[in-house]
Design a protein around this nucleic acid. Structure first.
Length: 261
DNA sequence: ATGGTTGAACCTCAA
């Protein structure tokens, strides 16, 4: 079995204790991190390497920043989402994991939030999702085991929202972003959690504000999208809700998929 | 109260 987890850590340095505790307890084979919010040179690499992980980083000061941690060697690392050299935001990293004679490609993606539908960040979000689909259509064509995990900032369906009425038309639920999420699925990528748990109403993000977690006002916006060859090996997918309840929690919880060997 | 909270870095922004 191989497990791949995604977690928007919301700054890796104040969350390092939690990250290490989780790595020790759950021992995921591959971890896709988003919003590490630091430059590569200040990422706490030594502490993570001590637990047996190789690291690929695409860091940035203050904002964004993505990483891949892997118990297996990482090769062919791609930093930055192809398709626009002017976009310097560190929101995408990809690597090939050499896994017991097989190869698996993984990517960690941090889709722009979009801020509000009438801001100029919203069209940037839509553009980013189009570039992502473009790149994914190439990766899917390789016919590999592929896991693309991250903070998509999209709740794909109303059942992924605790209170759909309240979130109607928001940047996380807007028809235009849902349409682009469906486009990723139409390329052959499947939502691992939804595939395993067709009816479950579980969430991966609760706003820090207004006591959202205590009211369970959450959305499922962190996803592990898997190619058909990966879906053939799918053993399970779960959301680590408990980690939202701890002291100094990230506003996101990890999502973990397990694939058979 | 155009709020509520968190993080990084600056005296505000992004989420």
């Amino acid at each position: 079995m191989v497990s791949v987890a995604t977690w928007n850590v919301n700054s890796v340095r104040p969350r390092l204790g939690q990250l290490l505790d989780w790595l020790r307890a759950d021992s995921p084979d591959i971890v896709l991190l988003q919003e590490i919010k630091c430059l590569n040179e200040v990422f706490p690499a030594m502490e993570v390497e001590e637990l047996g992980y190789n690291i690929a980083l695409h860091g940035q000061k203050t904002y964004n920043g993505v990483a891949i941690l892997s118990k297996y060697p990482l090769d062919d690392i791609v930093r930055g989402l192809p398709g626009d050299e002017t976009d310097v935001a560190a929101r995408y990293i990809e690597a090939v994991v050499s896994l017991k004679g097989k190869a698996m490609r993984v990517a960690s993606v941090y889709v722009p939030n979009g801020q509000s539908v009438d801001s100029d960040k919203f069209p940037y979000k839509l553009k980013f999702l189009e570039r992502l689909a473009e790149h994914m259509s190439e990766l899917v064509s390789y016919g590999e085991i592929l896991v693309v995990g991250g903070d998509y900032n999209i709740a794909p369906e109303d059942m992924d929202v605790h209170n759909p009425g309240m979130w109607q038309g928001s940047v996380l639920t807007h028809d235009e972003v849902r349409k682009r999420f469906r486009r990723l699925r139409n390329l052959g990528l499947q939502d691992a959690f939804r595939l395993c748990q067709p009816q479950a109403r579980e969430f991966s993000w609760w706003d820090y504000r207004a006591g959202a977690f205590s009211r369970d006002d959450g959305l499922r916006i962190d996803h592990l999208l898997i190619s058909a060859p990966a879906a053939d090996l799918l053993a399970g997918c779960s959301i680590h809700r408990d980690m939202r309840g701890v002291e100094k929690a990230s506003d996101h919880t990890p999502v973990i998929v397990t694939l058979r060997d």
